[in-house]
Amino acid sequence: MEHYDQNVGEVTLSYSDDGAGHCIILLHGFCGSREYFNKIIPELSKKHRVIAVDLRGHGHSSTAKGDYRIEQMADDIAKLIQVLEIDKVTMIGHSLGGYVTLAFANRFSDMLHSFSLLHSTALPDDEGGKANREKGMKRIKEEGIEGFVEDLIPKLFAPGNLERLKGEVESAKQIGFKTSQYGAIGALEAMKNRADLQEVLKKEELPILVIAGREDQIIPAEKTFLHKGNHITERLLEHSGHMGMLEEPEKLTEIIFEFLEKNGKI
Rank of each mutant, 00 (worst) to 15 (best):
K88T: 12
K262I: 05
K202P: 04
Y182M: 15
A158E: 04
L27V: 10
F115N: 02
I25W: 01
S114P: 09
A221F: 09
N230P: 12
E168F: 05
I51A: 01
Y182D: 15
G213R: 03
E238Y: 11
K228P: 04
I41W: 04
G186Y: 11
F108A: 08
G128Q: 11
V200R: 01
G144W: 11
V100L: 01
L226M: 03
E43R: 13
V210G: 05
L165E: 04
Y182T: 13
P249D: 02
G213K: 02
I185A: 13
Y68L: 08
D110V: 02
I255F: 11
G93R: 00
R235D: 14
N132T: 11
N263M: 10
E261R: 15
Q72L: 14
Y4M: 08
L152Y: 15
E134A: 12
L55K: 03
M245C: 04
H22F: 07
E142V: 06
M243H: 10
S114A: 12
A105K: 00
K192Q: 04
A195F: 14
K265V: 04
I41F: 07
L112R: 00
V200T: 03
A52I: 00
N132R: 15
I232H: 09
H60S: 14
S116Y: 09
E127N: 15
L84A: 12
H113M: 08
H22T: 08
E238F: 12
H60W: 12
L123I: 02
R164I: 15
S116H: 10
I140G: 01
K192N: 03
L102M: 04
I41P: 09
I140P: 00
G176A: 07
E215I: 15
R133D: 05
H94T: 06
P220A: 04
R164T: 14
K46P: 04
M111F: 06
D125I: 06
Q198P: 09
K141P: 14
G160K: 05
K138S: 14
R235T: 11
R107F: 04
L44E: 00
I40Y: 03
I256G: 07
N132A: 15
F257T: 11
K46A: 06
T233V: 09
E238P: 01
H60P: 14
I81V: 11
E222G: 13
L13R: 06
S16N: 13
Y99I: 06
E215L: 14
L188F: 10
G32V: 07
N38H: 10
K47M: 05
I41D: 06
L156W: 14
H231K: 05
E170P: 13
V210D: 02
H113N: 14
S61A: 08
I86Q: 09
E222F: 13
K178H: 10
S14G: 10
H3V: 08
G66N: 02
G29Q: 09
N106Y: 13
A184M: 03
F259C: 03
L84K: 09
Q174V: 11
F108G: 12
L236K: 00
Q72V: 07
G186K: 02
M243C: 10
L112Q: 05
V83I: 12
G59H: 01
Q198G: 05
E134V: 08
L197D: 11
D54W: 03
S116D: 01
G97H: 07
L27E: 07
L152H: 06
A190H: 07
T121Y: 11
